[in-house]
Structures are given as structure tokens and as C-alpha cells.
């Protein structure tokens, strides 16, 4: 199995060590589309989206891996989409 969730050490205020959980980019690229497909991100009338635990079981990943993949993938939309959305909402 690929090494998935990594802890990144960063130095915060007053030299305090902070650990950030991140998903390895390799694992992210490999599973992103499948995780999004099974999640609630695209909701279809046929059945519900799977929970993080259910997706993890289906893809043989740890739930923590799926959580991190989902957290990044949900925001992994081109920034232009936000500008486009603003124009869409401003239209009467």
C-alpha cells in the first residue's frame, strides 16, 4: 500500500511545532476521482453517497486517507469558477 497520510512539521508562533496532516500527492492523484465519485459530491437519485468509512472499505484505504483526499478534492476546482459564480449570482 502507498504511504498516504503524512505529517508535515512546521514552525508556528513562538517556535511552537505544529503538525499538519496531508495526503501524499501520489495517493491523491490516484484516488481523487474515485473518492469523489463515491462521495456525496455528486448526488444522484439512485441511493445515497457513501460515507468516508464506506469509501475507505471500498477502495481499501484508511478512513483518514479518504478524509484527506476528500478535503482537498472538494476544493480542487479552478479558481476562475469562483469568479464566474460571483458574476452568476450578481445577475438579476
Amino acid at each position: 500500500m502507498l504511504k498516504s497520510v503524512l505529517l508535515v512539521r512546521i514552525i508556528g508562533l513562538r517556535n511552537k511545532v505544529i503538525w499538519l496532516r496531508i495526503i501524499s500527492t501520489e495517493v491523491y492523484r490516484k484516488y481523487k476521482d474515485m473518492v469523489m465519485y463515491y462521495s456525496n459530491s455528486i448526488q444522484r437519485d439512485v441511493g445515497r453517497g457513501l460515507s468516508v468509512t464506506e469509501i475507505a472499505k471500498k477502495l481499501d484505504l484508511a478512513p483518514g486517507d479518504v478524509l484527506e483526499i476528500l478535503a482537498v478534492a472538494e476544493k480542487d476546482i479552478p479558481f476562475e469558477e469562483w469568479e464566474r459564480a460571483d458574476r452568476f449570482k450578481a445577475r438579476k
Binding site: I42, Q43, R44, E74, W82
Partner: peptide, 22 residues
């Protein structure tokens, strides 16, 4: 049948928090 693309709805309906990160 129906389908809701929630991922695309983020920038439209929920862009406050995610938009900040972006």
C-alpha cells in the same frame, strides 16, 4: 432521475470558507 453537482454548487452557494482557502 435527478443529479446535483454539489462540487459546482460550492463556488455559488458556499464560497465563503472554501473560497478563502482558494
Amino acid at each position: 432521475w435527478m443529479q446535483y453537482n454539489r462540487q459546482l454548487c460550492y463556488p455559488r452557494a458556499n464560497w465563503s470558507r472554501i473560497g478563502f482557502q482558494k
